[in-house]
Design a protein around this nucleic acid. Structure first.
Length: 696
DNA sequence: GAGCACTGC
C-alpha cells in the first residue's frame, strides 16, 4: 500500500509562507506505487501532477480544518484527491467523502471517471447526485460527487452534514451563488463540527482571500481547535497543471472593433502559422454570427488564402446538432475555427486547440436592486478569465494566445478576479435558502463576499410582499415554508401555491415546468419564419403561459413524439425535460398539501394564479404608444414585449411579465394579459399604498 | 424583431 503520513511519525517537510499559510515544496516526497491491478490506469494516475502531493495533501487535511488547493486544469485534483482520502481511511466507519461541482455535467463526468479508475460500478462505492438523478447506494457509496446546489438542499434535512467526514468544494474560483452560500454555511458548520474537513479547490491564486475568510473566527474557537490539535488557519497548497506553454501576444494599440480585429487575427494565423485549430472568444450570438459572416465574405472574395478553413459558431442557444459539430475531428489539411461565447471557457472542453484569440470581453449579468432589473452587459473580463482562456491553447501542445488588448491594459487595468455572482444577482432565492436553514440574521451572515445591503433589502421586501416572510422577516407558515420546499424562484413557487385555491394546479405546474427551462422553441438562422408560423398554431390570446399549455397538450396527444416536435418547431429535448421537471414538481406539490386539479378550459383562473405570484411585474401599455411601450406599475420603467412572445405586436393593455431581459431596451419575456383588478386582489398591501393609484 | 453561462427533490 501507499505510504501516508501518520500522526506521530516524522512530518513531511513544509514551509510557512509569508501569508501565514503553509506551502509545500514539491520535491522530497517519494510516492511508492500501490499494489492495484489496472496497471496502465494506475500509471496514468501517477503521471498526474497532483500525485506527488499525495502525502502532503493527506497531511494537511489531517492537521487543518480547511485546506485550500490551488491547481490549474489538468492537475488531476478533482479525480485524485477524493481517492487519496478514501485510501487514507476518511471514508471508514460509515462516513462519506463529498466532492461538489458547480455543473451537473461535470459531476457525472468526474464520478464515472473515478469509478472507472477504481474499477467499481458507478453508483456503488462511487456515486453521484444531481437534480433528478441520485446514483448512490446507502451504506455502500463512500465517494459522492454532487452539485453544490444539491449539497445545499441536503443541508435542509441535515444542517451539520453529519454523514460527511470531508467535503471538497471544487471550482471555488468560479464563485457561483451556490458555491458562495455553501462556503458561508460550511464555515458555520465547522464551528459546530471541528472534526469536519474542508478542501477548497480553486484554479486561481485568489486562495489568499479564501484563506482569510476561513481563518476569520472568534478567538475562543481558535483556542479550542488548537487544543484539538487542528490548526485554525487554512493551509494553502499549490499544484501545478499539466498544460503546455502558451505564448501570449498583445496588440500594440487598443482595437476599435474587436469583431473585425478577431477576424483579421484568425486570417493572419491561418496564413502564417502551422496547422492547429483556433478558438475565438467573443461575447454573444450577434458578435459570433457577424464574425462567421465576415470570414465567409473573405472566403467568397478570396482576398486572402482562406482555403481549408472550417468556421463554426458555438453558443448555448445553438441547436444541439450544430453545437456538436465543434467536437468532430478536423479533417487532414483543414483548420477548424471555433467562434465561441464563454461556454468554451468553463463549461466544455475542446480538443486540438492550438491558437486562442481573446477579445477581452464577455457578457455578464449585473443586478440593479433599485430597479430590480438584471442587465446583461458586455464587460471586460478579469485576469483570471484571460488566463483561463489562454490556457485553452495549451492542452495538446505548446500554443499561442492573441489578446486583442494591450499588455499595459492587462497589467494595470484588468481586475484580478471577476465580481462574484452573488454581488451581481437578485437575492430572493438565496435568502429563502438561508431562511429555510434557520438562519435568521441574514444581514449579519458571514459571506465569502457580501452582497450589497440594497440588494438584501430589496429581496426581503419582495419576499414580504409575496407573503413568504412576516414582519419579523421570519418564514410564514404555511406559505413561507411551502415556498422554501419548492426548488424554483419564489415567485413561481408562490404561483404554484396560489393555484391550489384557484383549482388549476395541474395547469400551473405545467407552466412552472416550462418556465424553468430555457426555451421550448427551436429557433435559429434561416428558420425564423417557419418557426414563427409554427408558433402561431399554438398561440393563445391570453399570452405565452397559455400558449405553453397548448404546446404541452399537443405534445401529450402526439404520444410525446419527436416527429411531432420537429414538425412544429418545438424542441423535443426541452419538452422531455419539462415533463421531468413537471413530475418532480407534482411530487413536491403533493407533499406540501397541494391538491392536483385541472381547471379544464377556464384560463381566467390560470391567469389569476400567475398574478398571485407575479403581481410585482405588472405593466400597462402607454396610451397613444405607437411602438408598444409599456410602463411598469411599480417603478414606471419603460419596457417592451420581447419579439419572441406571442403577444408581440398584440399589446394588450394590462400584462404581467415573467422576466425582464435588458439589452438596448428592456424586454419582457413570457407575458400574459390580466385584468388590473386582480392585482388588488392578489396583493392589496403592495398596490393599495400607492399614492395615486394607477390601477384604473 | 431578438437569446453570456450555470443551477435546484
Amino acid at each position: 500500500m501507499a505510504q501516508f503520513w501518520k500522526p506521530g511519525t516524522e512530518k513531511p517537510r513544509l514551509v510557512d509562507d509569508e501569508e501565514g499559510g503553509v506551502l509545500f515544496f514539491s520535491g522530497g516526497f517519494s510516492s511508492s506505487s500501490s499494489g492495484y491491478g489496472y496497471a496502465s490506469m494506475e500509471k496514468q494516475r501517477q503521471r498526474l501532477p497532483v500525485y506527488k502531493y499525495r502525502t502532503a495533501i493527506l497531511y494537511l487535511v489531517e492537521t487543518h480544518a480547511t485546506t485550500i488547493i490551488v491547481g490549474e486544469t489538468g492537475s488531476g485534483k478533482t479525480t485524485q484527491i477524493p481517492q487519496f482520502l478514501k485510501d487514507a481511511g476518511w471514508a471508514s466507519g460509515g462516513r462519506l467523502i463529498a466532492c461538489t461541482q458547480p455543473r451537473r455535467l461535470a459531476v457525472q463526468a468526474v464520478a464515472s471517471r473515478v469509478a472507472e479508475e477504481m474499477g467499481v460500478k458507478l453508483g456503488e462505492e462511487v456515486g453521484y447526485t444531481i437534480r433528478f438523478e441520485d446514483v448512490t447506494k446507502p451504506d455502500v457509496t463512500v465517494l459522492k460527487f454532487l452539485t453544490d446546489g444539491v449539497l445545499l438542499r441536503e443541508m435542509m434535512d441535515d444542517p451539520l452534514l453529519t454523514k460527511y467526514s470531508v467535503i471538497m468544494v471544487d471550482e471555488a474560483h468560479e464563485r457561483s451563488i451556490s458555491t458562495d452560500i455553501l462556503l458561508g454555511l460550511l464555515k458555520k458548520v465547522q464551528k459546530r463540527r471541528p472534526e469536519l474537513r474542508l478542501i477548497i479547490s480553486s484554479a486561481t491564486i485568489e486562495a489568499k482571500a479564501m484563506s482569510d475568510f476561513f481563518r476569520k473566527r472568534k478567538k475562543r474557537q481558535e483556542l479550542e481547535n488548537e487544543e484539538n490539535g487542528t490548526q485554525g488557519k487554512p493551509a494553502i497548497l499549490s499544484v501545478e497543471g499539466r498544460g503546455f506553454n502558451v505564448q501570449i501576444n498583445y496588440v500594440e494599440e487598443p482595437v476599435q472593433d474587436y469583431v473585425r480585429a478577431a477576424v483579421s487575427t484568425v486570417l493572419l494565423i491561418h496564413e502564417r502559422e502551422p496547422p492547429g485549430d483556433i478558438l475565438v472568444f467573443l461575447t454573444g450570438q450577434d458578435d459570433i454570427d457577424a464574425a462567421v459572416q465576415l470570414i465567409a465574405d473573405e472566403v467568397q472574395t478570396s482576398r486572402k488564402n482562406t482555403s481549408g478553413l472550417i468556421v463554426l459558431p458555438l453558443y448555448s442557444g445553438l441547436p444541439r446538432a450544430e453545437q456538436e459539430l465543434v467536437f468532430s475531428p478536423t479533417p487532414r489539411g483543414k483548420r477548424k475555427v471555433i467562434i465561441s461565447t464563454n461556454i468554451a471557457e468553463t463549461s466544455l472542453t475542446l480538443e486540438g486547440i492550438v491558437y486562442v484569440v481573446d477579445s477581452g470581453f464577455s457578457k455578464q449579468k449585473f443586478y440593479n436592486p433599485i430597479t430590480d432589473v438584471e442587465n446583461l452587459v458586455v464587460a471586460p473580463i478579469s485576469k483570471a478569465s484571460a488566463k483561463q482562456r489562454a490556457g485553452r491553447a495549451g492542452r495538446v501542445r505548446p500554443g499561442k494566445c492573441y489578446r486583442l488588448y494591450a499588455e499595459e491594459y492587462f497589467l494595470n487595468h484588468m481586475s484580478n478576479e471577476g465580481i462574484p455572482e452573488i454581488q451581481r444577482s437578485n437575492l430572493v432565492s438565496c435568502i429563502i435558502h438561508l431562511k429555510a436553514l434557520g438562519i435568521d440574521n441574514i444581514l449579519g451572515f458571514d459571506w465569502p463576499a457580501s452582497p450589497s445591503p440594497e440588494a438584501m433589502i430589496r429581496a426581503l421586501e419582495i419576499l414580504y410582499s409575496l407573503g413568504v416572510l412576516d414582519d419579523d422577516a421570519k418564514l410564514t407558515s404555511p406559505t413561507g415554508f411551502q415556498v422554501a420546499e419548492i426548488p424554483l424562484d419564489p415567485m413561481i413557487s408562490k404561483m404554484i401555491i396560489a393555484s391550489n385555491q384557484f383549482g388549476c394546479s395541474e395547469e400551473i405546474i405545467t407552466v412552472a415546468a416550462v418556465l424553468s427551462i430555457q426555451s421550448i422553441w427551436i429557433s435559429g438562422r434561416g428558420i425564423q419564419k417557419e418557426s414563427d408560423e409554427a408558433k402561431l398554431r399554438f398561440a393563445a390570446a391570453e399570452g405565452d403561459h397559455v400558449t405553453f399549455l397548448n404546446v404541452y397538450k399537443g405534445f401529450l396527444q402526439s404520444g410525446k413524439s419527436s416527429q411531432w416536435c420537429h414538425k412544429n418547431y418545438v424542441n423535443y429535448h426541452a419538452m422531455r425535460k419539462a415533463l421531468e421537471v413537471r413530475e418532480q414538481l407534482k411530487r413536491i406539490a403533493q407533499r406540501i398539501g397541494i391538491v392536483l386539479k385541472s381547471c379544464e378550459r377556464d384560463m381566467q383562473v390560470v391567469r389569476k394564479a400567475v398574478t398571485a405570484g407575479f403581481f410585482a411585474n405588472a405593466c400597462r401599455l402607454e396610451e397613444y404608444s405607437h411602438n408598444g411601450m409599456y410602463k411598469t406599475i411599480r417603478g414606471s420603467q419603460e419596457v417592451y414585449i420581447h419579439p419572441s412572445s406571442v403577444l408581440f405586436r398584440v399589446n394588450p393593455k394590462w400584462i404581467i411579465y415573467n422576466s425582464l431581459v435588458s439589452t438596448d431596451r428592456q424586454y419582457m419575456r413570457n407575458v400574459i394579459s390580466i385584468d388590473p383588478s386582480w392585482l388588488l386582489e392578489a396583493a392589496p398591501h403592495f398596490y393599495q399604498l400607492q399614492q395615486s393609484n394607477p390601477l384604473h
